[in-house]
Design a protein around this nucleic acid. Structure first.
Length: 419
RNA sequence: GUGGCCGUAGCUCAGCCCGGUUAGAGCGCCGCGUUGUGGUCGCGGAAGUCGGGGGUUCAAAUCCCCUCGGUCACCCCA
């Protein structure tokens, strides 16, 4: 008792059983959906050279002030991944798989920020990235895949917000327009944006304060100033979603946090979440990112879904209950002859989930464990069974149904009873 | 990074405002209720440096300060 104890670092948490079974269920559904759509799993490093992320988000807080960066023993400047896309794109540039390259991932992201409801310093994202095709139908597929996950877990109150933020051809001109609009009305913006409007005018549109909302109510909208190519692409996305029956709401104010987005930007909002963090998934197209990371000009589109937030939304809607897990059979052994281990493994080899107690506890105590485990059957080996080479098989759900069988026939009987 | 609220057994909490003998409850956990059998019930038990540090006081879980942690909001974002 001389040493103090430790706890998980601020903003991180342990996901333990039985709660963790829910995580597994969610991930398994995403795995299934992504696989059905032809996406392969990509597993990559949790950290990269800082440049990978810096090149990608110079103007976002996530990269500027929230990164966990450090120097390793070899003097390399590394950073824990603050988001998923940059790493995957780096992998694409490094390995040059044949496009179109469609992958999915489940990985932690790290951001140094003050934790609050639905916001952690380590959170986990399910995501996909599809590189090498500029087709709006790919945007549609990606968006529909995210939607499919929400459907699969039973979420109903989820709204898809959609916007196009143009590209290198049309956005600069629009930004000039917007800036001119804001400069004239600078005094009417909120304190936060009065000075910052020039740095990133798009941010002002995203501001939630009433001053900014009102002032920008009739601001020029990017969707009215898209170049023909972007406008055409955006129409394609909307038509594609509509024909698939994926409902969406156009939101001209929608801006993504990272610099690399072009054209399509989307966000899924959980209406059931009261907290400030109600975005349960977001993504978009990033046609300039591969080039920014040193690869050949390659279009791409993807999204990230926050596992913790989706689960909060599930709580709010009362869906995706924690799955009941546990073994089917519990082995009770008071002989101390190793019968418990032998029987448990015989069952496991036959594909039957089985567990047992340890520390030579009393029959009563072991029966209690069996009961608590939720197992359907208890196998009991006492002195009598030991002597006669048998096992008592007790049905824990019935009124005390118990039968005695020869050891060699236990597995067969258990199989029959569980069927 | 800024601000509000909170921090007592594994969990949920009472006690704190009006400082004072061995800090409580429920749940959970462990044991027992005779001969080898769980789920109900009964009895008993273990478990807390009252987040940590400092201060005030004869005396602090109770008052003050700092700190760490949690939570909520801003910012930002999944």
């Amino acid at each position: 008792m001389s040493s103090r104890s430790f706890q998980a670092p601020t903003g991180t948490r342990d996901v333990l059983p039985p709660e963790s079974a829910r995580w597994r269920a969610l991930i398994a559904r995403f795995d299934a959906l992504a696989t059905l759509a032809g996406y392969g799993l990509v597993v990559g490093p949790m950290f990269e050279e800082v440049g990978v992320f810096q090149r990608v988000g110079e103007s976002t807080d996530v990269v500027r002030k929230e990164m966990y960066d450090f120097e390793d023993k070899g003097g390399r400047h590394l950073a824990l991944r603050p988001e998923g896309t940059a790493s995957v794109v780096r992998a694409y540039v490094q390995h040059r798989p044949t496009p179109p390259w469609k992958v999915w991932y489940c990985a932690p992201s790290f951001r140094y920020e003050r934790p609050q409801a639905g916001r952690y310093r380590q959170h986990h994202q399910l995501g996909v990235e599809a590189l090498g095709a500029a087709d709006p139908e790919l945007d549609v597929e990606v968006v529909a895949l995210a939607r499919a996950l929400y459907d699969a877990v039973g979420l109903v109150r989820v709204t898809l917000l959609l916007n196009s933020i143009g590209d290198a051809v049309c956005r600069p001109g629009y930004l000039d327009l917007l800036e001119a609009f804001l400069v004239v009305r600078n005094a009417r913006l909120c304190g936060e944006h009065r000075l910052g409007a020039r740095q990133n005018p798009l941010r002002v549109l995203d501001c939630k304060r009433p001053e900014c909302r009102e002032t920008t109510a009739d601001a020029p909208r990017i969707v009215d100033h898209l170049c023909e190519a972007c406008a055409h692409h955006f129409r394609g996305v909307q038509e594609g979603l509509s024909s698939l029956g994926v409902a969406f709401v156009l939101d001209a104010r929608l801006v993504r946090g990272f610099d690399y987005y072009t054209r399509t930007a989307f966000e899924f909002q959980a209406e059931a979440l009261e907290s400030a963090q109600s975005t349960i998934g977001a993504g978009g197209r990033y046609d300039g990112l591969v080039e920014a990371l040193g690869g050949p000009a390659t279009p791409g589109v993807g999204f990230g879904i926050g596992i913790e937030r989706v689960l909060l939304a599930c709580d709010a809607e009362g869906v995706l209950p924690v799955p009941t897990t546990g073994v089917d059979v519990w082995v009770v052994d008071v002989t101390g002859t190793g019968a418990a281990g032998a029987l448990a493994w015989a069952l496991r080899r036959a594909g039957i989930a089985a567990d047992r107690g340890f520390d030579a506890r009393s029959m009563r105590a072991q029966m209690k464990l069996a009961d608590r485990s939720g197992a359907r059957l208890a196998l009991i080996v006492g002195d009598e069974e030991q002597r006669s080479g048998t096992v008592s098989v007790r049905d824990l759900r019935a009124e005390g149904d118990q039968q005695v069988v020869a050891r060699g026939e236990v597995v067969a009987l258990v199989k029959e009873l569980l069927a």
